[in-house]
Protein backbone atom coordinates (compact mmCIF):
# COMPACT_ATOMS: atom_id res chain seq x y z
CA UNK A 1 0.00 0.00 0.00
CA UNK A 2 2.49 2.59 1.28
CA UNK A 3 5.11 1.33 -1.13
CA UNK A 4 2.66 1.72 -3.98
CA UNK A 5 1.78 5.25 -2.93
CA UNK A 6 5.46 6.21 -2.71
CA UNK A 7 6.05 4.87 -6.21
CA UNK A 8 3.04 6.78 -7.54
CA UNK A 9 4.27 9.98 -5.92
CA UNK A 10 7.79 9.54 -7.24
CA UNK A 11 6.49 8.92 -10.74
CA UNK A 12 4.10 11.85 -10.66
CA UNK A 13 6.81 14.20 -9.38
CA UNK A 14 9.35 13.08 -11.97
CA UNK A 15 6.85 13.43 -14.81
CA UNK A 16 5.79 16.81 -13.51
CA UNK A 17 9.39 18.03 -13.56
CA UNK A 18 9.89 16.95 -17.17
CA UNK A 19 6.57 18.41 -18.30
CA UNK A 20 7.18 21.74 -16.55
CA UNK A 21 10.61 22.07 -18.13
CA UNK A 22 9.19 21.36 -21.56
CA UNK A 23 6.26 23.72 -21.19
CA UNK A 24 8.42 26.49 -19.76
CA UNK A 25 10.80 26.43 -22.72
CA UNK A 26 7.84 26.12 -25.09
CA UNK A 27 6.17 29.11 -23.43
CA UNK A 28 9.35 31.11 -23.88
CA UNK A 29 9.33 30.43 -27.62
CA UNK A 30 5.65 31.33 -27.87
CA UNK A 31 6.19 34.51 -25.85
CA UNK A 32 9.11 35.59 -27.98
CA UNK A 33 7.74 34.64 -31.36
CA UNK A 34 4.05 35.28 -30.75
CA UNK A 35 4.05 38.16 -28.30
CA UNK A 36 7.51 39.69 -28.70
CA UNK A 37 8.15 39.25 -25.02
CA UNK A 38 10.52 37.39 -22.75
CA UNK A 39 10.02 35.50 -19.50
CA UNK A 40 12.93 36.83 -17.50
CA UNK A 41 13.05 34.04 -14.90
CA UNK A 42 12.39 31.16 -17.29
CA UNK A 43 15.97 30.17 -18.01
CA UNK A 44 17.07 29.97 -14.40
CA UNK A 45 13.97 28.05 -13.33
CA UNK A 46 14.23 25.61 -16.26
CA UNK A 47 17.81 24.81 -15.35
CA UNK A 48 16.97 24.28 -11.70
CA UNK A 49 14.09 21.99 -12.69
CA UNK A 50 16.60 20.05 -14.76
CA UNK A 51 18.87 19.63 -11.74
CA UNK A 52 15.93 18.39 -9.66
CA UNK A 53 14.86 16.08 -12.46
CA UNK A 54 18.26 14.39 -12.66
CA UNK A 55 19.20 14.29 -8.99
CA UNK A 56 15.74 13.24 -7.83
CA UNK A 57 15.32 10.79 -10.68
CA UNK A 58 18.60 8.94 -10.14
CA UNK A 59 17.30 7.09 -7.07
CA UNK A 60 13.99 6.24 -8.74
CA UNK A 61 16.10 4.91 -11.61
CA UNK A 62 17.87 2.50 -9.25
CA UNK A 63 14.54 1.27 -7.96
CA UNK A 64 12.98 0.57 -11.34
CA UNK A 65 16.18 -0.42 -13.11
CA UNK A 66 16.36 2.55 -15.48
CA UNK A 67 20.15 2.97 -15.38
CA UNK A 68 22.41 1.29 -17.89
CA UNK A 69 25.54 -0.71 -17.36
CA UNK A 70 27.61 -3.58 -18.71
CA UNK A 71 26.39 -6.83 -17.21
CA UNK A 72 27.36 -9.34 -19.91
CA UNK A 73 30.39 -10.47 -17.92
CA UNK A 74 28.90 -10.79 -14.45
CA UNK A 75 25.96 -12.70 -15.91
CA UNK A 76 28.39 -15.39 -17.08
CA UNK A 77 29.38 -16.09 -13.46
CA UNK A 78 27.76 -18.74 -11.26
CA UNK A 79 24.76 -17.41 -9.35
CA UNK A 80 26.44 -16.96 -5.96
CA UNK A 81 29.59 -15.40 -7.45
CA UNK A 82 27.34 -12.99 -9.32
CA UNK A 83 25.59 -12.08 -6.08
CA UNK A 84 28.91 -11.53 -4.34
CA UNK A 85 30.22 -9.29 -7.13
CA UNK A 86 26.98 -7.33 -7.09
CA UNK A 87 27.34 -6.77 -3.35
CA UNK A 88 30.82 -5.38 -3.93
CA UNK A 89 29.44 -3.12 -6.68
CA UNK A 90 26.60 -1.93 -4.44
CA UNK A 91 29.18 -1.22 -1.74
CA UNK A 92 31.18 0.92 -4.17
CA UNK A 93 28.00 2.74 -5.21
CA UNK A 94 27.43 3.52 -1.53
CA UNK A 95 30.98 4.85 -1.29
CA UNK A 96 30.22 7.12 -4.26
CA UNK A 97 27.02 8.34 -2.62
CA UNK A 98 28.74 8.85 0.71
CA UNK A 99 31.52 10.97 -0.78
CA UNK A 100 29.04 13.11 -2.68
CA UNK A 101 26.68 13.42 0.26
CA UNK A 102 29.52 14.66 2.43
CA UNK A 103 30.69 17.14 -0.24
CA UNK A 104 27.14 18.31 -0.93
CA UNK A 105 26.51 18.90 2.76
CA UNK A 106 29.55 21.15 3.11
CA UNK A 107 28.71 23.00 -0.10
CA UNK A 108 25.12 23.52 0.98
CA UNK A 109 26.07 24.69 4.49
CA UNK A 110 28.48 27.21 3.03
CA UNK A 111 25.86 28.57 0.65
CA UNK A 112 23.35 28.82 3.46
CA UNK A 113 25.88 30.68 5.58
CA UNK A 114 26.74 33.18 2.82
CA UNK A 115 23.04 33.60 2.06
CA UNK A 116 22.96 34.47 -1.63
CA UNK A 117 19.74 34.65 -3.59
CA UNK A 118 18.97 33.22 -7.02
CA UNK A 119 19.75 35.53 -9.94
CA UNK A 120 16.17 36.09 -11.04
CA UNK A 121 13.97 35.13 -8.12
CA UNK A 122 14.02 36.34 -4.50
CA UNK A 123 14.70 32.85 -3.16
CA UNK A 124 17.81 31.88 -1.17
CA UNK A 125 20.05 29.80 -3.39
CA UNK A 126 20.54 26.98 -0.90
CA UNK A 127 16.87 25.98 -1.08
CA UNK A 128 16.82 24.76 -4.68
CA UNK A 129 20.35 23.42 -4.19
CA UNK A 130 19.22 21.20 -1.34
CA UNK A 131 18.28 18.58 -3.96
CA UNK A 132 21.97 17.64 -3.95
CA UNK A 133 21.66 16.39 -0.37
CA UNK A 134 18.13 15.02 -0.81
CA UNK A 135 19.11 13.22 -4.01
CA UNK A 136 22.10 11.45 -2.52
CA UNK A 137 20.19 10.45 0.63
CA UNK A 138 17.49 8.89 -1.55
CA UNK A 139 20.14 7.20 -3.66
CA UNK A 140 21.71 5.68 -0.54
CA UNK A 141 18.31 4.37 0.57
CA UNK A 142 17.74 2.71 -2.80
CA UNK A 143 21.20 1.11 -2.88
CA UNK A 144 20.74 -0.21 0.66
CA UNK A 145 17.44 -1.75 -0.43
CA UNK A 146 19.12 -3.31 -3.45
CA UNK A 147 21.94 -4.65 -1.28
CA UNK A 148 19.41 -6.22 1.09
CA UNK A 149 17.64 -7.86 -1.85
CA UNK A 150 20.92 -9.37 -3.01
CA UNK A 151 21.77 -10.60 0.50
CA UNK A 152 18.37 -12.27 0.85
CA UNK A 153 18.69 -13.71 -2.66
CA UNK A 154 15.73 -11.82 -4.13
CA UNK A 155 18.01 -10.24 -6.73
CA UNK A 156 21.42 -11.00 -8.17
CA UNK A 157 22.26 -7.87 -10.19
CA UNK A 158 21.35 -4.24 -10.83
CA UNK A 159 18.65 -4.99 -13.42
CA UNK A 160 19.65 -2.49 -16.07
CA UNK A 161 17.36 -0.77 -18.54
CA UNK A 162 17.17 -2.62 -21.80
CA UNK A 163 16.26 -0.52 -24.80
CA UNK A 164 15.82 -3.67 -26.86
CA UNK A 165 13.35 -5.07 -24.34
CA UNK A 166 11.43 -1.80 -24.28
CA UNK A 167 11.28 -1.70 -28.06
CA UNK A 168 9.80 -5.18 -27.98
CA UNK A 169 6.82 -3.75 -26.12
CA UNK A 170 6.13 -1.73 -29.23
CA UNK A 171 6.31 -4.89 -31.32
CA UNK A 172 3.92 -6.67 -28.96
CA UNK A 173 1.48 -3.80 -29.06
CA UNK A 174 1.51 -3.87 -32.85
CA UNK A 175 0.93 -7.61 -32.98
CA UNK A 176 -1.93 -7.36 -30.54
CA UNK A 177 -3.69 -4.60 -32.45
CA UNK A 178 -3.19 -6.49 -35.71
CA UNK A 179 -4.97 -9.51 -34.21
CA UNK A 180 -7.63 -7.62 -32.27
CA UNK A 181 -8.97 -5.26 -34.88
CA UNK A 182 -9.39 -5.72 -38.58
CA UNK A 183 -7.38 -2.65 -39.53
CA UNK A 184 -7.86 -0.59 -42.64
CA UNK A 185 -4.25 0.37 -42.48
CA UNK A 186 -0.65 -0.74 -42.91
CA UNK A 187 -0.41 -4.28 -41.73
CA UNK A 188 -3.48 -5.25 -43.60
CA UNK A 189 -2.54 -3.58 -46.82
CA UNK A 190 0.74 -5.45 -46.77
CA UNK A 191 -1.08 -8.68 -46.02
CA UNK A 192 -3.62 -8.24 -48.81
CA UNK A 193 -1.00 -7.60 -51.39
CA UNK A 194 1.10 -10.40 -50.04
CA UNK A 195 -1.75 -12.84 -50.42
CA UNK A 196 -2.35 -12.56 -54.08
Amino acid sequence: MVRNLVTKLEEAFLSLLLVSMTLLVFAEVVARFGFNAGIHWAQEVTLLLAAWFVLFGASYGVKVGAHIGVDVFVKLMPHNTHRFITLVAVGLCLVYCGLFLYGSWIYLSKMKMIGIELEDLPVPKWIPMSILVIGFVLLIVRFLQLGWKVVTDQADGFHFADEAEESMELAKELEETALATEPKEGANQVKKEGDK
Binding site: R32, G38, H40, Q43, D120
Partner: peptide, 16 residues
Protein backbone atom coordinates in the same frame (compact mmCIF):
# COMPACT_ATOMS: atom_id res chain seq x y z
CA UNK B 1 20.67 45.86 -18.07
CA UNK B 2 17.11 44.58 -18.08
CA UNK B 3 15.86 48.00 -17.01
CA UNK B 4 18.12 49.69 -19.55
CA UNK B 5 16.50 47.94 -22.50
CA UNK B 6 13.02 48.24 -21.04
CA UNK B 7 13.66 51.99 -20.87
CA UNK B 8 13.77 52.16 -24.68
CA UNK B 9 10.77 49.78 -24.95
CA UNK B 10 12.96 46.96 -26.22
CA UNK B 11 12.60 43.35 -25.05
CA UNK B 12 15.58 42.11 -23.00
CA UNK B 13 16.10 38.34 -23.17
CA UNK B 14 18.45 36.36 -20.96
CA UNK B 15 20.21 33.75 -22.99
CA UNK B 16 23.41 31.83 -22.31
Amino acid sequence: LQAQFEAVEAVPLKKP
